[in-house]
């Protein structure tokens, strides 16, 4: 494997056990995409028929379906790319496939830890953990955790944040 193929977060920090997201996250993401697509299709149906005619509509829907298939493939792989790791002093969250991102959040700087779950997430028994520091807009999300795991993570983070308060 050439050097360029090794992503940043596999090289550093190396000896970490990255915890993956729950497998249902994939289903949740895919369902979310389907719902959005269906809504879009219903909204666009009448204008498209008037504007393009039946053949045009068939082509448009075909293109949309192809894009959706591509997106499905990306989602499946992107969900696998999510991961978080707890180190001694900080929490690491990595995500993204095309646009990779690694966030390092020191426990001492955590201001708020929230749990939240959207309707589809809830149906599959998943929870998202949101971590905020004092830097505005710096929200680190860990989606698709089992509620127990999320609760445990929240409690651990809150406890460690209280231990090492570094604040602003």
């Amino acid at each position: 494997m050439s050097r360029s193929a090794i992503p940043v977060w596999d090289r550093w920090p190396t000896e970490l056990d990255w915890r993956p997201m729950a497998a249902e996250l994939r289903t949740v993401r895919l369902l979310g995409m389907t719902v959005r697509l269906l809504i879009l299709a219903v909204v666009m149906l009448v204008p498209l028929v008037l504007w393009l005619g039946p053949v045009g509509v068939a082509i448009a829907f075909g293109v949309a379906a192809a894009l959706a298939a591509l997106r499905t493939w990306v989602i499946v792989r992107a969900v696998r790319a999510w991961g978080f790791a707890e180190r001694e002093k900080d929490l690491l969250v990595k995500h993204g496939l095309m646009f990779r991102e690694l966030s390092i959040v020191p426990y001492g700087r955590i201001q708020l830890v929230d749990l939240k779950a959207g309707p589809i997430e809830r149906a599959f028994g998943l929870t998202t953990v949101q971590i905020r520091t004092a830097a505005l807009g710096a929200v680190t999300e860990i989606p698709g955790l089992d509620p127990d795991v999320a609760q445990g993570l929240r409690d651990r983070l809150a406890a460690r944040a209280a231990e090492v308060r570094e604040g602003l």
């Binding site: 095309m98 990779r100 991102e101 690694l102 966030s103 700087r109 710096a138 680190t140």
Partner: peptide, 14 residues
């Protein structure tokens, strides 16, 4: 004063 650190990499950058 550093709160958190982020590393980002887009496809071209990769």
């Amino acid at each position: 004063r550093i709160q958190q650190v982020q590393v980002k990499q887009g496809p071209l950058q990769r």
